[in-house]
Amino acid sequence: MITRIILGLAMIVSLYSTSYAHGTGYRQSSLNAVALEFTYSTGEAMSYREAKVFSPLDDKFAYQTGRTDEEGRFSFVPDAKGEWRVIVRDEEGHQCEAKINVNNVDDDVHAASENLQGMELTVRAVLGVSLMFNIALLIRRRQNAHQ
């Protein structure tokens, strides 16, 4: 009788253990993550775009894949020193590649952003239009000079 009870309890414990082994859990990580924000040149966020992270140790197979959030943010935790590449692309052929130099796996992460910096977008737009009209006027003047 005692043997049967022990066997029964052992079976229940084993079943419980088995189901518990396939459960899930979480803990808050204290590791330093690299967080990036991806935008189009107009400043608009690259929302929900495919993101691939390439480790300096393996340039072919992605270390991590995923998608940016609504604000174009994507983060990962590097596990090696060196230059990490994060490529975010959309379905229409736009692509942004960020190169991150990780000097210390725990801290000191320097991002080299490729986003529009320096001159404001408006200034660039005015410069572009001005260039086009100046080229046109130059061609016209030369044409008039020849005639």
């Binding site: 107009t42 737009a125 572009g128 239009v129 009209f133 046109a136 061609i139 016209r140 044409q143």
Partner: peptide, 22 residues
């Protein structure tokens, strides 16, 4: 037609700026 080069520049500028209209 080089006599219409300013018109070409105007359209080129419009095309250049249109990409900023989201």
């Amino acid at each position: 037609d080089t006599s219409k080069i300013v018109r070409t520049a105007l359209l080129s500028s419009s095309f250049f700026l249109a990409s900023l209209v989201n």
